[in-house]
């Protein structure tokens, strides 16, 4: 039987992803300059920020594929949407973990309602609801459509949540780092390599999850859990 990894292009993608991840580790710990005052704590920036950018890329994919599914009624878009939602939410969980890990030594407390982290937390909770709808909202076809609507609403909500939580606590420092454009180029080079490396991981996980999702869908049809194809 054909598995995900027996397909040649997936093998190539996995090899490239692993290679980039390995080089990325080396760049982060050996090449990137050590920032004064923060020392090794600053290294988490090369995980945290690429994770964040890619999580939001993932949530954008959720909303786009959800829209396509609603309009075209093609289950392949629903499978893409679910795959993107799960991968993006896994990334969001990692953002929520790496943020406090950095903040504990630098700010002296792990959670201080920093606007971007707070937005990620709210989004994470919205997507917990999204997965509950997938599980408990009745027939497969219907719960898929409901989930699609929530995926779209969530994307619309992101800028509003960010605006609201930023204005809500103006005294909270909104970003620990300097503006991205003001970073020294030695840091930026490693950062963009890391960003690309994490995007590869996102793509790989997305393809893998979509492949599994398609198998699950086929099994559901075979077991008669889905009425029409």
């Amino acid at each position: 039987m054909q598995t995900f990894h027996s397909i040649r292009r997936h093998q190539v993608l996995l090899a490239i992803t692993l290679l980039f991840a390995a080089v990325n580790l080396w760049l982060i710990y050996e090449v990137a300059p050590v920032v004064a005052k923060q020392e090794m704590a600053q290294k988490i920036f090369y995980y945290h920020v690429p994770l964040a950018w890619n999580a939001f890329l993932g949530y954008t994919i959720v909303a786009i594929t959800a829209g396509l599914y609603l309009v075209k009624h093609d289950p392949k878009w629903d499978i893409w949407s679910l795959a993107a939602a799960e991968v993006a939410t896994a990334f969001a969980l990692l953002i929520l973990m790496t943020g406090p890990i950095w903040a504990t030594p630098i700010w002296g407390k792990s959670w201080s309602w920093e606007p971007r982290l707070t937005t990620t937390l709210v989004l994470f909770v919205i997507f917990l609801g999204y997965f509950m709808v997938r599980e408990f909202a009745g027939p497969y076809e219907r719960s898929s459509r409901y989930a699609a609507v929530i995926g779209i609403l969530a994307l619309i909500d992101i800028p509003l949540i960010l605006t609201a939580v930023t204005w809500w606590a103006p005294e909270v420092q909104s970003h620990p780092q300097m503006e991205m454009a003001n970073q020294p180029s030695a840091i930026l080079r490693v950062f963009f390599f890391s960003l690309f490396s994490f995007t590869l991981i996102l793509i790989y996980m997305l393809l893998y999850r979509r492949y599994v999702g398609a198998l699950v869908y086929r099994r559901k049809i075979a077991q008669g859990e889905i009425d029409h194809v």
């Binding site: 709210v122 919205i126 917990l128 509950m132 219907r142 409901y146 605006t163 939580v165 204005w167 809500w168």
Partner: peptide, 29 residues
């Protein structure tokens, strides 16, 4: 959408409240 689901009564606040966070903040402030 949630109230047509079997577990709709439970799902409703779980989906609604996080979506409404910006509104709770704005209205309170």
């Amino acid at each position: 959408l949630s109230l047509r689901a079997p577990a709709g009564d439970t799902l409703l606040p779980i989906i609604l409240f996080p979506l409404l966070t910006p509104i709770l903040i704005a209205a309170t402030k």
